[in-house]
Design a protein around this nucleic acid. Sequence first.
DNA 1: ATGAAAGCGCTAACAT
DNA 2: ATGTTAGCGCTTTCAT
Lengths: 338, 338
Amino acid sequence: MSRRPVRMADVARAAGLSPMTVSRAFRADAAVGKETRARILRIAEEMGYVFDAAASGLRSQRTGFVAVTVPSINNANFADTVNALSRELGRAGLQVLLGYDLYDPAEEEALVEQLLRRRPEAVVVTGGAHTPRTRRLLQAAGTPVIETWDLPERPVRHVVGFSNAACMETMVDHLVARGARAIAFIGGDISDDTRGADRRRGFQTAMRRHGLDASRLLPIGAPPASMATGAAAMAAALDEGLRPDAVIGVSDLAAFGALTECQRRGVRVPQDVMIAGFGAYEIAAVSVPTITTIDPHPAEIGREAGALAVRLLADPAEDRGPIRIEIAPLLRVGGSTS
Amino acid sequence: MSRRPVRMADVARAAGLSPMTVSRAFRADAAVGKETRARILRIAEEMGYVFDAAASGLRSQRTGFVAVTVPSINNANFADTVNALSRELGRAGLQVLLGYDLYDPAEEEALVEQLLRRRPEAVVVTGGAHTPRTRRLLQAAGTPVIETWDLPERPVRHVVGFSNAACMETMVDHLVARGARAIAFIGGDISDDTRGADRRRGFQTAMRRHGLDASRLLPIGAPPASMATGAAAMAAALDEGLRPDAVIGVSDLAAFGALTECQRRGVRVPQDVMIAGFGAYEIAAVSVPTITTIDPHPAEIGREAGALAVRLLADPAEDRGPIRIEIAPLLRVGGSTS
DNA sequence: ATGAAAGCGCTAACAT
DNA sequence: ATGTTAGCGCTTTCAT
């Protein structure tokens, strides 16, 4: 049971070879006899040897992984981004080291520091708003840094994202074209949720541009926006006598919650009130009616971020200036606004 | 930009101390003068020094993290388990190293091997079904191993979970008590989805116990079960003239999909058909009607698994035999069955 | 409370 | 295609 772990030297001894040859056998590209490699790997497996990635990384100064942070491990959009990113990096022999911060900038700071302690070869973070110390840590990391899901004015370095504000401007334009005037916005009221706050700002900008009242803001508190908080916000609005002819949720989850509250009260969607969301979550395509939303193409963000990371690692000269890749979001019209 | 990274020795030189004292300053419990430590940490921060966890772990043979695998990073239940686990481990100074396998046993095998290469101090995996090689890797890891979300007959070592089959027996009993006889089951048809297959088996067992027809099985293919596949399965069943008086989804997501299909066709829930799910996802509590489900207490699973890991690491003598902690799931009755 | 010497398990660099 | 020597950045161990 608790016998000493098998080391590379043990495998080398068993195979009658030097540790260096065993080391080479574990690298696909190294010059080792084909049969020698097969024999080494067989012996290693039999002995229960497990390669020590920490020792390898320490000596070679290459850890083979990219640190990735997401706000939550319970979100289809970030999952799609990470999956695509992971696939892209995998093709270059890189792995993802994943961390999450529960939408909390202080948590993000602690997370980034912990991840950097493991010496990733690149860092991909979600969002463009960080604590000053997080920014400093990232800038001093000495590795490529990519921010995603945002187009920050003052990026740390590289960016693959889209404008959350512009998405909501598009949505307001859509609703106004459909005849809506008294439009309410659910969420985005907590500054921690910077992407949500950006969307709310976009809502306000567009409303003012149309000469409409931008003050129908329904708060839902700390991120992430949920179905339950969306429903509660809608309930509170209706109880207060607010009679919007359209409601935009900071995400499809909040929008769906609002839809269910309407169903409970016999408020017809879209006849009495139109409803729209953000994110193109599955719920928007399955609910009755389907919910008008905006698809930010999460997988494409992951793919582009992964490809960019690979490019920057392959040729550090590419990292001479900030690179900015914009992914175009897509309006998906559902039954909730028509 | 690409200057040599700052090492502990650089900080020591700047502080006029030996590297050993700097090393101690970075361990909360080590004997260093209070002011000395503060000065060292300040200098380190100013110099942009980042502690090298790999070098530390290599020398001390303590990495300070626990490897955790989940099927998906897009699932509220696993997220709750990981959050609780993470909090519990954090109190003991341990971090989570998270990996996901997309419900694929071959992916799980590769994932477990990659995680073991980083020398975790313990391993927590989701589920009790693995490839033979995954079992071998885990058994030879020389660290505590905990399986969760299942009660396997032949566990690798320790278990914190519940019986997926028993949950569905409870649900069938509930529906039969409500008057249902022609009950259908959506999902669990792919062997990769072992927890889903267990639930399906529990459905069949209970139906036979009640002397009812257990053959109304609606397939949805590869896991995870989604709203869309649940809706498609319900649509196919209704198109084929199957007229169940109750439908159980392998998860709430599939159940909700079935509910929406009923809404689209004017089939009334629960009057024409009752609907039930599993998992106590938010959708079950927010949908109209709410969906009867089973709450497996994901956070409690995480908490117990974390506490067990901490206990086993604190005193390896505790690891003399397999420990099995059962978490009792809870039936939550909603409007979809009453 | 602080320091000196040695070495964790692997691989770069140089050999043959 | 394979072997030898040295050392990656830290911490153990034993000093003082």
